[in-house]
Design a protein around this nucleic acid. Sequence first.
DNA 1: TTGAAAGCGCTACCAC
DNA 2: GTGGTAGCGCTTTCAA
Lengths: 347, 347
Amino acid sequence: MTCLQPPASPLRRLRQRPTAHDVARLAGVSQSAVSRAFTPGASISDAARQKVAQAAQALGYRPNLIARSLITERSATIGIALGYMENQFYPAILDALAAAFGRVGYRLLLFTQGPYDDTDPMLEEVLRYRVDAVLVASIRLTSRFAEECAKANVPVVLINRRTDTDVVSSVTGENGAGGGRVAAFLAAGRHERFAFMAGLEDSSTSREREEGFRLALREGGLAAPVRVVGHYDAEAARAAAASLLGRRPRPDAIFCANDHMAFVTIETARAEFGLEVGRDVSIVGFDDVPLAAWPSFALTTYSQPIQPMVQRVVEITLGHLAHGGSGPVRATVPGALVVRSSARLPA
Amino acid sequence: MTCLQPPASPLRRLRQRPTAHDVARLAGVSQSAVSRAFTPGASISDAARQKVAQAAQALGYRPNLIARSLITERSATIGIALGYMENQFYPAILDALAAAFGRVGYRLLLFTQGPYDDTDPMLEEVLRYRVDAVLVASIRLTSRFAEECAKANVPVVLINRRTDTDVVSSVTGENGAGGGRVAAFLAAGRHERFAFMAGLEDSSTSREREEGFRLALREGGLAAPVRVVGHYDAEAARAAAASLLGRRPRPDAIFCANDHMAFVTIETARAEFGLEVGRDVSIVGFDDVPLAAWPSFALTTYSQPIQPMVQRVVEITLGHLAHGGSGPVRATVPGALVVRSSARLPA
DNA sequence: TTGAAAGCGCTACCAC
DNA sequence: GTGGTAGCGCTTTCAA
């Protein structure tokens, strides 16, 4: 009895996944035809497409996107560098980004801070994976990162962050204007002793919000705010809030650089100082994450609307992908002051 | 003057990324040597490695992981199907998974519910991308999903979910035991009118927690709980909580199938019914997400510790990847009752 | 230790 | 509309 198994070709490992060749053989067409059958808009007859579909079905064939990527030089994959999931803003935007990019045929490949001390090894990784673009949210990036990506011709879009120089695209909320609007609202509420809780010192977002806040206070002839730093971190924010609330005289209006720190400040005011938020002290945030609307917080905050931001990110990314040479775009998405009850209302 | 540019090879598009060939030429070695220089543990002399490293540096060369994957049949990528980011448990576990898999050389490719009505088109996608394994958290999966992945020889690990049959690996918390422990605690606190808020009807997690809860109540000779369904969703949970709290007599102990619904129930009890949680009504959750520890909620809950769960997921996944044929593993990670003040304490 | 050569599964191009 | 063929950038033999 002769052996019926085909002689294993030299390099062939125990392969079980059917290839386009297998499908072609079964369908009685060429391998090119199989490729065309799986390429929308390719020139192929209905009959051929039908036969291929049937054979593929029978074999459980699925086109290998890895092989396709090798040729097309497009991986249909977008790298996203992200961390700080404790802040509800980031899970929310991640979810929306994955959905929006999914709709136009891209998947997100996640890069968290991971085991690196520094972001640069992550940069190596992200570029080796040949992602079509890189999104950066909530992570400090070295200037080398943007340079290397530019050199490798991989577009970068920053989310909720900017660089000082205009070299890379970004989508942010109305940081300066929002900070100013918060100041005006608190001033109208007859507050007198202002405070600002910064995020990270090198965060453009925190800086811009602070500048807008300070500027509007100054223009209103009001006292400059006391300043503490919460590092966007729950523990640090708690300490910062405690130092602020322990001062005499106590500030009567605290503007936190994001909602996450504002929640911590509210918790601290209540639990450690026995204050009633919105009466004894006013606390305002920035972002308008879902939690802000919950009655326990009822946080007055300046919104950064997720959907419009994601929309801009997608547009800008696809724009870069389409006409590679286009310059960076710095988009600002309008928000609005959402008035709830964590800050005293104007009379 | 002769043209110094090399004649463009037929298929060559405007390529700018240097390849191993380019590096080899500059370093004066073979392309194989370049490959070996970037393969840990390959047999290559220090001198050669040095020359290659230098040339690679000069050219800005990065190995193309796509090309490597085509040969090795490993993409170093793990698909993760996930949604429901509003529940803090999922961002937290995603973050931890990305870090843990990053440490062993894998990236996560994100698949959200996306534009699909049904999860099956997502299945197609995930398998075309040739991910090495699939993680499923918080998404209903059709039984076809697991079958197809098995057929394609792609291991699947469910997180915080199980299938009824033993066909696929899973990592869950102590759902049954936890539900029982909650019942015992509430019984010891002299509660009398129990209620259970279920998640999704077809969620194994919710069912197991409920069974454990009911069983322990029955064994303690206590009344069976009233039952409502919150669908793991904030709006549905609010309605369910309202219906529960509007009953006469009102339940004095509500066990919610997860923390997220417990928070909503607390909010509803306070804002809509003016109740003091922990005195007028006891509310218990399941998960112990970070928010549960905040003073405003101080939620008594049964924990599902993130790190040990992630550790098990990584172990099981790597196990499947190493010896492909191994059967499914159903791991349970121990938790503990975390007593705070949202439920009346035993006397 | 090294280089030549084959080939992973597919797309792109070319004649027909 | 179709099949043949070259080749994407790499890993993996194999012989030297």
